[in-house]
C-alpha cells in the first residue's frame, strides 16, 4: 500500500457543500506532510471514476464526504461505494463522514480484512449551521464545532497516528466541544451538545485499530 489519500468532495446540496469545504483542513494537512492527494471533486465524485482511481492508485487512506445509508456511500449524484465494490476498501484505512455507513457497509468492507480499518458512523451524522453563512460555509462559526472534530480522524492519520488514536482523538474533541458549548451557555447550547453526543455515540472503528498510513 502506498502512502496517499483519495478524498471525495461532492457538492450537490448544502450538506455536502459544507463537509467538502471543511475538508480543506484535511487536504492542507496532507500537503504539510507531503502526502499525495487525489481529489474526486464534484462530478468526478462518481462511481466509475472512484473505482478507476482506487484500482490505479494503491493509496492507503480513503476519505469519503457524502450522504450515506447503512449499506452505501454516495458521491455527487449516486452511490460510490457499496457491497459490490467493497473489496476495494478491504485493506485500506477508510474514514466515511457519511450517515450510518459504519453499521453495515463498514463491516462488509472489513470482513476478512487483515490490515484495513473503517471509521464511520452507525447513526446519522449531524451538525448545526448558521443560515446567515449558508452560502459561505467557511465563515460559519457554528459548523466547525461539529466538523472540526470529525476532520481530526483524517488529520490524525495523516500525522502518522494509528487508526485507534485518530478515532479516539476525534471523539475526545467532540466531548471537549460539548464542554465548551455548555460552559459558554446560550439557548442553543443544549441542542449543540445533543448533536455532538449523537456523533460521539455513532462514531465507530471497525477492523485493525493499529492501522497506520
Amino acid at each position: 500500500m502506498d502512502k496517499g489519500m483519495i478524498i471525495t468532495l461532492p457538492r450537490n446540496d448544502y450538506v455536502t457543500e459544507y463537509i467538502s469545504q471543511y475538508s480543506i483542513e484535511i487536504i492542507n494537512q496532507a500537503r504539510i506532510k507531503g502526502v499525495p492527494v487525489k481529489e474526486l471533486k464534484d462530478k468526478n465524485a462518481n462511481r466509475e471514476e472512484f473505482e478507476s482511481v482506487l484500482r490505479k492508485l494503491n493509496y492507503s487512506l480513503i476519505v469519503f464526504n457524502g450522504h450515506g445509508s447503512e449499506v452505501s456511500i454516495e458521491g455527487q449524484n449516486g452511490v460510490l461505494a457499496d457491497k459490490a465494490n467493497s473489496s476495494l476498501l478491504k485493506e485500506r484505512i477508510t474514514y466515511a463522514r457519511s450517515c450510518s455507513a459504519g453499521s453495515i457497509l463498514g463491516r462488509i468492507c472489513m470482513k476478512d480484512s487483515k490490515k484495513g480499518c473503517f471509521i464511520g458512523y452507525t447513526l446519522p451524522f449531524m451538525f448545526y449551521v448558521d443560515s446567515n453563512w449558508i452560502s459561505t460555509p467557511r465563515k460559519d462559526s457554528v459548523a466547525p464545532l461539529f466538523l472540526e472534530p470529525s476532520n481530526l480522524v483524517a488529520i490524525s492519520l495523516l500525522k502518522g497516528n494509528s487508526a485507534l488514536h485518530a478515532h479516539e482523538n476525534s471523539k475526545k474533541q467532540m466531548l471537549k466541544n460539548i464542554n465548551k458549548v455548555l460552559r459558554r451557555g446560550g439557548n442553543e447550547s443544549f441542542l449543540f451538545a445533543q448533536a455532538l453526543w449523537n456523533n460521539y455515540l455513532g462514531q465507530v472503528l471497525i477492523g485493525n485499530p493499529s492501522a497506520v498510513m
Partner: peptide, 17 residues
C-alpha cells in the same frame, strides 16, 4: 421551541438543512 434560535439549521444527512 425554547432552545433553537431561528438563524440555526440542523443538517442531518440526506434530509438536508
Amino acid at each position: 421551541e425554547s432552545h433553537m434560535p431561528s438563524h440555526l439549521k440542523l443538517s442531518i444527512g440526506s434530509y438536508g438543512n
